[in-house]
C-alpha cells in the first residue's frame, strides 16, 4: 500500500478507499467459513424454525464452547509451524483430575479448581514444549508420543472409575446451565478467551513474533526473535487452554473417566484448518479457528434438525475440511501471483 501510494501520481480518490476496504474484506481468510456458517444456519432455520429457538441457540453455543477453546490454543501452536496432537489427552487428564478433586474435597472453591486445572494443563503443555524446543524434535512426533503417555496416565489413574455430575457441586454444574444475556456462562468464558488471544496475536509484539516464526523460522531467528521462548510459550498457552477446556468439560458433561476427550485432537486441528489456519504456519487467526469450531459443531446439530441421517455427519465434516484446504490453496496461489505481479511492476 505504501509503495503504491509512493508511485501513484495523484492521491487516491475517496471512492478508492472504500473499494479497498471492501476488497480487503473479501480477501479475509475467515470469509469462506463465516459464509458457510451463515448459510448453514439460514437454511436450517428456514426449514426448521425450532433450530434458532432460544434453547436451540444455547445448545449450539454450548456444544461449540470446548472445541472453540481448544481450537484457539491449537491455532497458536500451528501458526508457529508446529502441531499439538496431545490436547485431547490433556483435556482428559484435567477433566478427570477435576472430577477426582471434587470427589476428594467437595468444598473446594470453584476458582481454585479452575486455577489448578489450568496449571496442570500448562505443565503438560510445557513438557511438550520443552521436549520440542530443547531436543529439537518435530512437534508431530513428540505430541504423538505424549498423546499416548498422557492418555496412559489417565487410564492408570482412572482405571474403571468414573465421576458423575452428582459428585460435583451444583454451582459448578450450573456454569454450563445458567445464561447471561442468553449466552451460557461457559460460552462467555470461551468468547473471552478468543477475544484476549485475538488481541494478543493481532496487537502485541509477541503475537506478531509467532507469525514471523511460522513464516520462516530461520529468518525469525536472524531477526533476533527468541524463537525457542516464543514456541515454548505457544505450547504452554495451548496446554493452559486445554486445561481450561478440561475443567469446563467436567462442568458441561455428566461423566468423566479414562477415555474422556479421546480422539478430540484431530477435530481440533480440523476446526483450525476449516477456520483458515494454514497447516504449515505463518497465517490464520484465532477468530477464524473459533468460527471453524463453531461451524463443525453446528453442522452436527443442523443435520439433526434437518433430519438428515446422522451417519452422514462425519462424511460431511470430511468434505468440509477438504474444501477448506482447497480454498486455502487457491487463496495462496492467487496471492502469490499478485505478489509476483506487484513486484514486477515496482522493479
Amino acid at each position: 500500500m505504501s509503495l503504491d501510494s509512493k508511485n501513484a501520481p495523484a492521491r487516491p480518490a475517496p471512492g478508492h478507499e472504500r473499494t479497498s476496504v471492501l476488497a480487503s474484506l473479501l480477501k479475509l481468510r475467515e470469509l469462506p467459513v463465516i459464509l458457510a456458517l451463515v448459510l448453514l444456519v439460514a437454511v436450517t432455520a428456514a426449514l426448521n424454525p425450532l433450530f434458532l429457538s432460544e434453547q436451540g441457540i444455547k445448545d449450539l453455543l454450548l456444544n461449540a464452547t470446548i472445541l472453540m477453546i481448544l481450537a484457539v490454543g491449537q491455532t497458536l501452536v500451528i501458526i508457529t509451524r508446529n502441531i499439538d496432537l496431545s490436547v485431547g489427552s490433556i483435556l482428559g487428564l484435567v477433566a478427570f483430575g477435576t472430577g477426582s478433586l471434587f470427589a476428594a474435597a467437595p468444598d473446594v472453591p470453584i476458582v481454585v479448581v479452575f486455577v489448578l486445572g489450568m496449571l496442570l494443563g500448562a505443565a503438560l503443555g510445557a513438557f511438550n514444549g520443552l521436549l520440542i524446543t530443547i531436543a529439537k524434535v518435530p512437534a508431530l512426533v513428540i505430541t504423538l508420543g505424549t498423546l499416548y503417555i498422557y492418555r496412559g496416565i489417565n487410564n492408570a489413574w482412572a482405571g474403571g472409575t468414573q465421576y458423575f455430575a452428582g459428585d460435583r457441586p451444583q454451582a459448578f454444574g450450573d456454569l454450563s446451565v445458567d445464561t447471561f444475556l442468553g449466552f451460557p456462562l461457559i460460552t462467555l468464558i470461551a468468547v473471552g478467551v478468543v477475544a484476549i488471544v485475538a488481541v494478543y496475536m493481532l496487537g502485541t509484539r509477541q503475537g506478531r513474533d509467532l507469525y514471523a516464526i511460522g513464516s520462516d523460522p530461520d529468518a525469525a531467528r536472524l531477526f533476533g526473535i527468541p524463537v525457542t521462548r516464543r514456541v515454548l510459550l505457544a505450547f504452554v498457552v495451548n496446554g493452559l487452554l486445554a486445561g481450561l477446556a478440561g475443567v469446563l468439560y467436567a462442568s458441561r458433561f455428566n461423566s468423566v473417566g479414562a477415555t474422556t476427550g479421546a480422539g478430540l485432537e484431530l477435530d481440533v486441528v480440523a476446526a483450525a484448518v476449516v477456520g483458515g489456519v494454514a497447516i504449515f504456519g505463518g497465517s490464520g487467526t484465532v477468530l477464524g479457528a473459533a468460527i471453524g469450531a463453531l461451524l463443525l459443531t453446528t453442522i452436527t446439530s443442523a443435520l439433526t434438525a434437518l433430519r438428515v441421517d446422522k451417519f452422514w455427519q462425519q462424511a460431511i465434516v470430511g468434505v468440509l475440511i477438504l474444501a477448506a484446504v482447497v480454498i486455502d490453496r487457491i487463496a495462496s496461489v492467487r496471492s502469490a501471483r499478485k505478489l509476483r505481479i506487484a513486484e514486477a511492476r515496482n522493479v
Partner: peptide, 27 residues
C-alpha cells in the same frame, strides 16, 4: 490426486479424508 497433482498439504488433506472415509463407512 489431491496431494500429488493438486499439491495440497498431505497432513491437512488426510485429516479431511480421515473424517470422510470413516464417515462413508458409517453411511
Amino acid at each position: 490426486v489431491l496431494i500429488a497433482y493438486l499439491g495440497l498439504p498431505s497432513l491437512a488433506v488426510t485429516i479431511g479424508t480421515l473424517a470422510l472415509f470413516r464417515g462413508l463407512a458409517l453411511v
